Each structure stands twice: as structure tokens, then as C-alpha cells.
Amino acid sequence: MSGLTLHLDVERWRRHLRAEAGSTPGLVPVAKGNGYGFGLHRLAEESAALGVDTIAVGLPSEVEQVREAFGKTVVILNPWDAHNPLAVELAEDPQVLTTVSRLADLAALADLQTRPRVLVEVLTSMRRHGIAPTDLDRVALLADRVRIEGWSLHLPLREEGRFTEAEQLARAALAAVDAPLWFSHLPPGEAAVLAAGLADAGAPPVPLRLRSGTQLWLGDPDSRHTTATVLDVHKVSRGERVGYRQRPCRFDGYVVVVAGGTAHGVGLEAPSSASTMRQRAIALTTGGLEAFGTALSPYTIAGRKRFFLEPPHMQSSQIFLPNGATPPNLGDEVPVEVRLTTVTVDQIVPASP
């Protein structure tokens, strides 16, 4: 075993998946990008094992990566693009559900001979994709030329005002076309209250589909951990020049070369929000440290996270370990804290008991 390795307690992970599926009516697993660190094919297999009838991908190019393992409906979350030949081809595929976020695109899809399956996206306060609530009545004019299988609403993560927004947009959508509501970032408890509240007196709750990616696949962090193989260890002295940039060492110590670099996504973590002055100060400080080649790495060696010697390389990183700390041996596995939505591991292995 060598490289960047994800150690997965498979049984515990699957227990979490089953629990999420059991508590999320209308669950639509999301498998896109790097497959949340697990790979798209594996997530398709796990989705099939959960017994769901739909899986969501981000791009048309990801459909083929899940279709072999998941033989039911595949919904493409990114808006349909008339200039993408693959998107046009897949819109006529009976297994594919196409998301449409512009009235002009909905009209173009309505001109296809196959009466494609579509999910119409409503513009939320995210202001990313979607048809404005004031224009939803125009969707109804095309409802007989496409198969509208639902309204898609992608809500922000912020809890304040989320339920109110979901209810207002849902009512506007249902007033235009009576169809199921597909939500991202709406908790199951709020979804149940919303569905019941939208229903007419004596009628069953409005059908809701809840998309889940991060919470489903990564919601139990104790089911996994990631390590990196020690590839080399070199004793260095103060003043000795090291690394690509040949910066002089500030102290005596060791250069520890570990698996994981920019090709894996190490050092390329997704940005987090900095809404307070303290968070902004931390971000500014971190940026300054990185500029001087002293950014704290995600690698733990001899009990502590250690600093990068310089920015990560393509497939490995150089870490500085000061004198006084016991250096690891060649081939040792050291803990590395990574965000699986941005990192690609070399291998996934069963976690040791």
C-alpha cells in the first residue's frame, strides 16, 4: 500500500447510508464531480443497493459513469445547454431527466420530437440558475410538449429564512404546474411540514424529492480516515538550501516527503466562507504564511500538524520536521486531513479494526 489512501469502515458507512435513506423520504443521491472522494461508479453501486429510483449527476458527461451500475433514472443537475451535443442527445434518452433553467431552453426542448423528461428549476436566493418566480406561468404554456416531472429548488445553506423561501417558491411553482418538488438543502423534518402545509384540506401531502450529497456520503466522518505514505526522509541543517525554490532552512531538522500533491487536490482545498472579522483575519494570515512557504499542512507527523516546506508538488509534498521530533520511517503511513469533495485518493481500503 502506498500513496494517498482512504481507510473506510465499509459496514459502518453503509449503516449510515441506510439510516439516511430511511429518514429521507424521496431520497435522490447526488453523485457528481470526484464522487465525494469515493468515485462515481462506487456511488452508483451504493445508490442501487439502497433501492432508490433516481440518482443525480452534475454534468452530461457523468451519465455514462453511473449508468452501468445504476439502471434507473439519472437526473442531470446542471442546466441544459442547447450548444452541448451530448446534452441534446441525452435529453431524448428515456432514462435521463434533464434540468432546464431558462425559458428559451424549455422552448427548444419542447421542439424535440420525443417529448423529453424535464425538471424545471426555479430561481432561488442563491441566484445561480433558474426561472424567476414571476415567469413560472409561462412554463405552463409548454407543459403539453414536454414531460414536466418536477420543480427543482436549490436552497442556500443558511437556515434563517430557508423554510419561508421554500414555501413561497413552492406555492408559486405549484400554481403554474402541479408537479413534485425537488429540493436541495431542505432537511427531511422541514420537508414533511412543508409538504403537509402545501396540500389542500383532506388531500395527501405534495410529493417531495430530497437531493443529498455531502450529508449522505460524508455525514459520518468517524467511518473513515485518510493517510499518506512517507516516501523519503532527509536530514537537513540550518541554512541548507532545499526544495524547488532552494530556500534556506531556518532550523535543523528533517524534510519528510509524503504522498499527495496538487494532482490529488492537496493544497487546493475548496474555499470556506469568512463572514466574521476573525475568520477574515485567519484567512489573511493563512494566505500570508503560504506566500512565505510556511503554510501549515494537513499532514500530522510525530503528533502534530507540520508546515509545508514549500507549496505541494504534483504528486507529493515536502514537509519540514524540526529537530527534537522523531522522524517517521520510509513507508510509514501518516494521518492527513483532507476534504474529500476536492481530493482524489489513490486507493480505498478497508479500515483496520
Rank of each mutant, 00 (worst) to 15 (best):
L194W: 11
E121N: 09
H7K: 15
V74Y: 13
V230T: 10
V206T: 08
S316I: 02
P85L: 05
V177Q: 05
V177E: 07
V63R: 09
P350A: 05
L8E: 00
L90W: 14
P156G: 09
D220T: 04
D232T: 03
R247L: 08
F183D: 00
A69E: 09
E11Q: 13
A49Y: 07
G39K: 09
V10D: 11
E337W: 14
E89F: 11
F307A: 15
R102L: 10
R15L: 02
G26Q: 01
L157P: 04
A175K: 04
G33V: 01
T229V: 03
G219H: 01
V343A: 13
D200N: 15
Q279S: 13
D144M: 04
P350L: 06
E290Q: 08
P207G: 03
G150H: 09
H313E: 06
V258S: 09
I76Y: 11
A191Q: 01
R145W: 12
L119P: 11
T227V: 12
I319L: 06
S212P: 08
E310P: 02
D105G: 09
T214R: 13
E46L: 15
A31T: 02
A132P: 02
R211T: 04
L40F: 09
S152C: 12
A179H: 06
T276S: 10
A196P: 05
E64N: 11
I319W: 10
D178Y: 06
M314Q: 14
A143L: 12
Y299T: 03
F183Y: 05
L153H: 05
P187M: 08
T342Y: 09
D346G: 10
I301L: 00
S275H: 10
A199D: 01
G33L: 13
V334G: 06
L208G: 11
V139C: 15
A132I: 02
A170R: 07
R12C: 00
E167D: 04
P221G: 02
I301G: 01
C249I: 04
P353C: 01
H7L: 14
P248Y: 01
V242L: 00
A107F: 11
A44K: 09
D81Q: 09
E45A: 13
